[in-house]
């Protein structure tokens, strides 16, 4: 428990630092894209929106710095991240909220699947080292070294254009709008299958290889020999003794992968025209939509932090030794 509190304090500090940097960054930048934009489009903004943008981008230099900082925090807590220039001046938080579920859902589920499948396969071929199961390794690594966009295009060409099994792009059929109906959920699943499959295949090799190598290392440990000498069943030795220890380093990589989910997989979202965060960030950059970019950076930073917290908790639960260590 004390371990957890200490970690949480550490993460609270990191989050504070990240947000503070986000506050100072535009104030230290040369040039001022916002004022120019505001002057051009003054009539479209209401005074409140202009105020909020001035706080976010440090144009309120008439106020003392402490006051600016205070206002900035107040704005964050009320969920106001400014207005997006390129999305018809919609609130940034709403624009992000409309893209986030797609990315989280698709890339998140794909990453989790990939981790579990890859780790299980790795466990098995590590356990049966030197057997024919080892042939899985070159296949898995082949898929992760193939350029992703190329694999995406091939998959579209085969399963969408040629066979017509799955739609090639977007998150749901044209003309329908998000709602909680079986029909719509079916559409989302159909549209998500190809992107999810390609993500799984592209990342599987890393998990398989990592787990297999750890298994081989752990299998040489004395406690595995002891477990065998104790007459335990092979399944028990494999899971409780070998895999249980070999999976620990995998967790750290998994946490990193989880953190990067929110950043979106830009290439995937481009190839499949998927309306996720990665595409949003690209659009924002192209349109010089500063408020949206700033908002996205903040969300991505916080997501990485949350993923790290989860990884820490999981690590603490699975490895008693980390609980002892000083933060």
């Amino acid at each position: 428990m004390r371990f957890l509190l200490r970690r949480l304090a550490f993460y609270a500090f990191t989050a504070w630092a990240a947000i503070t940097i986000n506050f100072f960054l535009p104030r230290m930048m040369k040039g001022d894209p916002i004022t120019a934009y505001l002057q051009k489009h003054q009539s479209e903004f209401n005074p409140e929106a202009i105020d909020s943008l001035r706080t976010l981008f440090g144009l309120d230099s008439d106020k003392p710095l402490i006051q600016q900082y205070w206002d900035y925090w107040g704005q964050l807590f009320s969920g106001d991240l400014g207005r997006s220039f390129s999305k018809g001046l919609a609130p940034v938080s709403e624009v992000i909220a409309s893209a986030l579920p797609w990315t989280l859902g698709l890339v998140g589920i794909a990453t989790i699947f990939s981790f579990f499948i890859g780790t299980s396969v790795g466990t098995f071929i590590g356990w049966r080292r030197g057997s024919r199961a080892d042939y899985v390794v070159p296949f898995a690594t082949f898929f992760s070294t193939v350029p992703y966009f190329w694999m995406g295009l091939i998959v579209i060409a085969i399963f969408s254009t040629r066979l017509g099994w799955f739609p090639a792009s977007h998150a749901y059929d044209k003309g329908s709008s998000p709602e909680w109906s079986w029909d719509f959920i079916g559409q989302v699943v159909a549209h998500g299958t190809l992107p999810a499959l390609t993500i799984v295949f592209a990342s599987l090799g890393g998990w398989v290889l990592g787990m297999r190598n750890m298994m081989i290392t752990v299998l040489d440990e004395d406690y595995v020999t002891v477990a065998e000498a104790k007459g335990l069943s092979p399944q028990r030795v494999m899971t409780r003794y070998a895999a249980r220890n070999a999976v620990l380093p995998q967790l750290s990589s998994f946490a990193l992968a989880l953190g990067f989910i929110v950043g979106g997989t830009l290439v995937m979202e481009l190839v499949f025209s998927y309306p996720g965060v990665g595409k949003l960030l690209l659009d924002a950059t192209n349109a010089k939509d500063w408020p949206l970019m700033q908002g996205l950076f903040l969300v991505i930073t916080l997501a990485v932090l949350v993923a790290n917290i989860l990884a820490d908790v999981a690590h603490a639960m699975l490895d008693p030794r980390t609980r002892m260590m000083e933060s």
Binding site: Y223, K230, G231, R244, L318, P320
Partner: peptide
């Protein structure tokens, strides 16, 4: 039968006292 025999009839104490126990159990 070998697994059932091990430990029940003949048990072992191993060389490496430090690594003979599973660290996570």
């Amino acid at each position: 039968a070998m697994r059932a025999f091990r430990w029940d009839k003949v048990s072992m104490v191993f060389q490496g006292a430090m690594n003979a126990l599973n660290p996570v159990a």
